[in-house]
């Protein structure tokens, strides 16, 4: 198990380096001069040049990249252009909001998507199934930002006062208010994924229910509810768990839009704001952070998958001994 984790980690390194090169280059290619934004529009050319030098923007891109990368390897993401505080601190400060939002969305995905999928499979091709399938398809095809805008429109314009549609309250501060504030953003973030998970669960459940060992359990006189819960569900959820892992990555991506629409001070919002003022160290810091989380989550999911699946587990145990 440990060996698997380590080998996956090592193979992730080149991927991360490639991501960093691409994002670094793309950022420098984007129009806009950070020095100008930092020094102000009315700054004289001499001042501008000095600022540029202090930001090392006058050096070739690859030299800048190399300096950045060697700092990164020491755990240093550099300092923000705007307030000179370390990027790691800026991210750490914004992280709780994103974590809370993603956790709420993930909870929604699991708590709504999985039961919907199971119900759909058990009622395959009947009324409930048709409704759920149409709903999931709609959910999957509507992007986050549409859902987010609709929710803001609904609760901010048509029915104001029902539900807070703006801002963020840390869960440690005021539990009830925090939950209230997170509901709409979490729905917007989760909506496309709920449909996906429902569809995955449905097809995986149907596949498992069609297996011979389910018939064998029936032929043994096992109660149908037991068959669904004990025989089918566990095997059916294996592939769903993998998908959920990948979705955590997408949640981080989706949080960029959702946090912006709902004014939540998370890292998604940070990414947008920092890019707007060309605060490159912060922008690329957030990008790398998201990439690393994405990769780590996938490794964790792979390892977990092995823990749940006896066949893979046995394979590793055999390999170890």
């Amino acid at each position: 198990m440990l060996r698997l984790a380590v080998s996956r980690l090592l193979s992730a390194v080149p991927v991360l380096i490639l991501i960093s090169i691409v994002s670094f280059t793309l950022l420098r290619l984007a129009p806009g001069d950070p020095a100008l934004l930092s020094a102000g529009l009315e700054a004289s050319p001499e001042v501008l040049e000095r600022v540029r030098q202090s930001m090392r923007l006058d050096e070739p891109v690859w030299v800048q990249y190399w300096a950045w990368l060697s700092d990164l390897l020491r755990g240093d993401l550099g300092n923000s252009y705007s307030d000179k505080s370390p990027v790691t601190e800026v991210i750490a400060e914004r992280l709780p909001a994103t974590l809370q939002l993603s956790a709420a969305a993930l909870l929604l995905i699991v708590a709504v998507g999985v039961p919907m999928g199971i119900l759909s499979a058990l009622r395959a091709n009947r009324m409930a199934d048709q409704v759920i399938r149409v709903a999931s398809l709609a959910g999957v095809s509507v992007p986050n930002f549409i859902v987010a805008l609709l929710l803001v429109l609904l609760f901010g314009w048509w029915f104001p006062g029902l539900m807070p549609y703006e801002g963020f309250v840390p869960i440690t501060e005021d539990f009830a208010a925090s939950i209230q504030h997170i509901v709409l953003p979490a729905i917007a973030l989760a909506a496309p994924q709920v449909g996906l998970v429902a569809r995955m669960t449905r097809s995986s459940m149907l596949e498992v229910l069609g297996q011979d060992y389910i018939s064998a359990a029936r032929a043994m006189g096992v109660r149908e509810s037991v068959i669904v819960c004990r025989d089918a569900l566990r095997n059916a959820l294996l592939p769903v768990v993998t998908v959920l892992g990948v979705q955590i990555g997408y949640l981080l991506g989706g949080s960029v839009v959702v946090e912006t629409v709902f004014s939540i001070p998370g890292i998604g919002r940070l990414l947008v704001d920092s890019f707007a003022i060309r605060d490159y160290p912060v922008t690329i810091g957030v990008m790398m952070f998201i990439a690393i989380v994405f990769v780590l989550v996938n490794i964790v999911v792979d390892v977990l998958y092995g823990v749940i699946n006896p066949r893979i587990r046995a394979g590793y145990e055999a390999g170890r001994s």
């Binding site: 011979d212 032929a219 006189g221 566990r234 095997n235 066949r311």
Partner: peptide, 21 residues
């Protein structure tokens, strides 16, 4: 109670007739 009690069935494909987990 009758299924698997007084009337039992054996399936064609032994590997898939056992829950792999």
């Amino acid at each position: 109670r009758i299924r698997g009690g007084r009337l039992a069935m054996v399936f064609q494909d032994p590997i898939n007739s056992f829950n792999p987990a």
